[in-house]
């Protein structure tokens, strides 16, 4: 494992911790899209079907369990916890995410590495992860101003994607047989979705101002 990938995994973990911290400390999930969180839970459940069939490393297995449990816990909190549920911006979070699930699944049936149960679900999870942030970005755009922790949450998620691209470039040059075009192309699409957010994030950071997304 190279430093870029480790840093990518760590920033991914930090983004989840920031989100949990926000929900726990403020007992509020305002500014957070339940739809994006549901999509992430589906992403991890579909991708880590290999948890019991393929052992890669202790690190790998532990991270998989952490990602599954934390994503399910966040969805549970936003749906069931009384105070948290009340703060949910339901009327702003109207993106039809079921279409994304359907489209990604059909796409996975068409484009995959092997036509097996696990491989189709793996490809599905890669495609779905690429677009899962869309409901969150739409919600932020609609609400206009973004609170600190929510901004940091999205920032760390974006950083994780950017670091994974550096990891692939590194692996491409250092590994003999490195071909994973499904993950790489989806990863590029996913990172591109953050470009707009990053632009305004750095602008607010440079001007030391609150993060505002123009409508």
């Amino acid at each position: 494992m190279n430093a870029f990938r480790l840093a990518g995994d760590i920033t991914h973990l930090i983004s989840i911790l920031v989100l949990l911290l926000k929900i726990y400390a403020t007992k509020s999930c305002s500014g957070i899209s339940l739809k994006t969180q549901e999509l992430y839970a589906v992403v991890f459940l579909a991708r880590y079907l290999d948890l019991f069939t393929d052992f890669i490393s202790v690190y790998n297995s532990v991270m998989k369990v952490v990602f599954i449990l934390s994503s399910v816990a966040i969805v549970w909190c936003m749906r069931r916890h009384r105070a948290v549920k009340r703060s949910y911006d339901k009327e702003l979070d109207t993106f039809r995410h079921y279409y994304l699930v359907g489209a990604c699944f059909v796409f996975a049936l068409l484009v995959h590495e092997k036509f097996t149960f696990q491989e189709v679900f793996w490809a599905f999870s890669i495609y779905l992860e690429a677009v899962a942030i869309i409901p969150q970005l739409v919600l932020l755009q609609r609400s206009g101003n973004v609170d600190n922790l929510t901004g940091q949450y999205v920032f760390f998620l974006g950083a994780y994607r950017a670091l994974y691209i550096l990891n692939w470039i590194y692996r491409y040059f250092t590994e003999a047989k490195f071909s994973r075009w499904i993950a790489c192309i989806s990863g590029l699409v996913q990172t591109a979705l953050y470009a707009d957010f990053f632009y305004y994030y750095f602008l607010s950071w440079k001007n030391n101002a609150k993060l505002n997304l123009p409508a």
Binding site: D50, D54, N60, F67, W122
Partner: peptide
């Protein structure tokens, strides 16, 4: 030699 696992990333 064993092939490296295709899905070794998270």
């Amino acid at each position: 030699k064993e092939q490296p696992h295709a899905h070794d990333e998270l």
